[in-house]
Amino acid sequence: MTDSANTAEELFGQGHAGCKGCGAAIAGRQAMAALGRRTIITVPASCMATLGGGNTQTTWRTPFYHTLFECAPAVASGIRAALDIQGVKDVNVVSWGGDAGSADIGFQSLTGAAERQEHMIHVLYDNEMYMNTGGQTGSQTPLYAITTNGALGKKVRKKNMPAIMEAHGIDYVASANIAFPADLIAKFQKAAAKEGFSYIHILAPCHRGWGIKPDQTVDIARRATECGLWELYELDQGRRTRTYEPGLTPVADYLRAQGRFRNLTDAETAEYQAYVDAHYGGWGGKN
């Protein structure tokens, strides 16, 4: 090992205060590789907000603002308005929420900004539970997953956020996965070129919440896409394209490898498999 390797300045991630093997930090690094230096990023309460800096030091080399929980897209709307009025055109405005800050407590401001077709990108980095408070169940927690306040597993399905965002008629909707960085980066580049609202939903495992080892963060994420539970696709001006064709491995390869699904029965695994078989490609398996 050497210390010369970190002489290259990264826009985000070096020295962050997150856990080893943090999926959120991987998502952030990949996204910033696409977005570049002229980006203002707002992050509501989340691991991503707190790991980015403490006191007078931050890991971000772009303007970063840790917003209140409910309102990152609203703040971003205001930032865009302020840039517009000052004639600044070449800056990306991004709000970057976790699953809670986007789909749950932050949903109101997200739907508001999307409906207004604000010129911005909203990212949902999804670790499928409320990890910044220790791993409680939220709307993005998948069926049967065990959490710190749901030892018996979640009883209902994950809310389909990309479909909800698609219904806003925004410029660009995409799913992404930290195990597919080239795909992720290409999607951020597309989103950054849009004049209106873009939504990118990134699967970013949290090994602590998922009951996997830190070094499995990327591998497990990859399995989610390979088994068909996390389809990689985009809706560019409403036109749907699958951006990666997986082998569609058995869902068990993904589910059984995780502690949060340790109580999954064979019947429940089969239910998951049947769901993927029926719905891969969108609701009703349209693609």
Partner: peptide, 25 residues
């Protein structure tokens, strides 16, 4: 000559002007 943000709630309204202010407006 101002940009108007049609906020979807009072919370977001103040959040939006806060964002505007942080960006110098």
């Amino acid at each position: 000559n101002a940009r108007f943000i049609r906020a979807e709630s009072d919370h977001s309204a103040l959040a939006a002007v806060l964002g505007g202010s942080l960006a110098g407006a």
